[in-house]
């Protein structure tokens, strides 16, 4: 393992990436799909509104992109801090 301060910085960077990802996770599902749906009522998508699309399709697509982004970003972070396997 690298020295203490470097491993603390690595963990702090990881927490930051997790936080950003969780905000996106929340907004794509609970936000656009549920709570903010009334605000999106004006945006029509195939006979209904954007909120409905996020609840039944969009949120899932965002989740996939998010997990691959996190994996890619963390693997890069591992290399930057020399903690990859």
């Amino acid at each position: 393992m690298a020295d203490k301060s470097s491993s603390n910085a690595y963990w702090a960077a990881n927490i930051r990436i997790i936080m950003i990802s969780l905000v996106i996770w929340f907004v794509a599902s609970y936000g656009l799909g549920i709570i903010l749906r009334p605000m999106l009522a004006g945006v029509t998508v195939g006979g209904t509104d954007l909120g409905f699309w996020f609840a039944q399709q969009g949120s899932i697509i965002v989740f996939i992109v998010l997990i691959f982004f996190y994996a890619w970003r963390m693997n890069k972070l591992d290399a930057e801090y020399g903690v990859e396997e």
Binding site: W25, S29, G33, A55, S59, I60, I67, M74
Partner: peptide
Amino acid sequence: IAAVGYGNSTYLMGWTGGYVLLALLLAP
């Protein structure tokens, strides 16, 4: 989903969104 429509989107989001938590918070 057919029976209720939009209201049962909970299953779609709930049963997939858990994987984000798994990938970020537990699995690695």
